[in-house]
Design a protein around this nucleic acid. Sequence first.
RNA 1: GGUGGCGUGGCCGAGCGGUUAGGCAGAGGCCUGCAAAGCCUCGUACGGCGGUUCGAAUCCGCCCGCCACCUCCA
Length: 505
Amino acid sequence: MPTPSFRLYNTLTGQTDPVEPAEPQHLRFYACGPTVYSYAHIGNFRSFVTADLIARTAEAIGWDVTFVSNITDVGHLTEDDVADAGGEDKMAKALRKEGQRFANVWDLARYFSDALITDWRALNLREPDVRPRATEHMQQQIQAVAALQEKGIAYETEKGVYFAVEQFPAYGKLSGNQAAEALAEGAAGQGRTTVQDPEKRDPRDFALWKKDAKHLMQWHSPWGWGFPGWHIECSVMATEYLGEQIDLHAGGEDLIFPHHECEIAQAESLTGKPFAKHWVHTRFLQVEGEKMSKSTGNFFTVRELIASEDEGGRGISPLALRMTLLSGQYRKPFNFTFDKLRDNAHHIQRIETVIQRVDAALQANAEGDDFVGERLDGLYERALQAMLDDLNTPEALAATIEGVKLLQGVGDELSGASAQSARQWLDKINDLLGIIRPQTEGEIADDATADPLAEKVEALLDERAEARASGRYDRADEIRALLDEMGIEVMDSSDGTTWRRKVSV
RNA sequence: GGUGGCGUGGCCGAGCGGUUAGGCAGAGGCCUGCAAAGCCUCGUACGGCGGUUCGAAUCCGCCCGCCACCUCCA
């Protein structure tokens, strides 16, 4: 079969380009991870989902994938994107906020990076092949800064080491931010109060190393005690695990400038070669029509959405959350709403029903032709083509829902052969989109039987069945109302009554 | 001010020059003791004004509106 073309919008070229790995059929890419000073929120995860989908789509067309996604566990400064890196340390700030909960910033970083990984798995995100931590690559960062200094591209001042943007004429090629004046004005126009380093040669110059012997996380360097600039870690870790030239680099749209612009400047100055060929950026999401930001507090962590209600969460199925995130294409503005979450929770519930039917049909293995395979193949192909076209998740989801409805419509009439096809289709769709089965075992499939309420519910249903059989419908409806209050949905059919938990969004 | 993105039916959301996207909500019907679930049927929209074309949601121009980045943040 001809090699399918995987097209993604490339911020660098401003157009949708085919992804062309340096080594054919082997995609090597890097996705910027979060700074672990709090629980990751749904906005973080929108961009991690994009990276996950890139990996899944590449794998779906038979490519090998080497995927690296970092954890930033160095306490960078709240305003360190400004060249001078003023402001307050993010981790130190978090530590103060968390009070006695953590003994120090290291513990805090460890706790939240563990939490990140837990949430990552809950959302069915593919594990990166390497998940490097900034603190574990300090030598390499120091060496990179020293190398830049040797080349005359970086210079030292009282306060730190800076990258001389003047030495890198291509600076601005990713973001379009070319003019030094504009940059300086932009900052000033926003009423910046950051203390500028008077020794800085150019307002565009950014910090590679900050001298600070009082910083909570500090390392020894040729420039004394201090800590690295924010941008250098990604250049260094990407290069370390993927080579000097990588196929693709992804992140949130806010990273275009300055983070990725600076990464390019550093990496390309060091190697003299183009750093990443393809740059992919995920648009920020909004919540109920408003910008999600920490300052206004209208943001949701994955954790609080998926934790059970007993644990103070909202009990939302991780798959429903994932599907909601997929319901908008990564490059378009996305308005996260609870309406959407509810819709998608229903879809997930329907998928679960279909899975149960298919499993039952596989067991029964009834005679008969495969009368769904061909149509399902077509629907998978449609979903795959959609994903290959700049991760068109809404279209892929539409094809998936059509397939689910097809299987649902066939109902209990599935032949063994049809069930086989259905199972294969579900597995393939799951590999591609990750919305069919949870990665962690047994969370959904056994839900009904493992439910702590099961015994009580069954008892009530038995009583209701008796009431119905003897025509005491008042009592039957009373029981149904009771179950409804317990969050249980009752479904009568010709071959018995089934139940499930209601979607609780 | 600079840079980039977006405006589709009640809502969400595909569409890349000419055949019904799909979903949610809603309406009617089937099923049901009644519900729920499920199934069937029903929607002709494309910010505005010009232009190109036999034909435009789809291409071009202008205008209007929304959003993001250029502070923290994916």
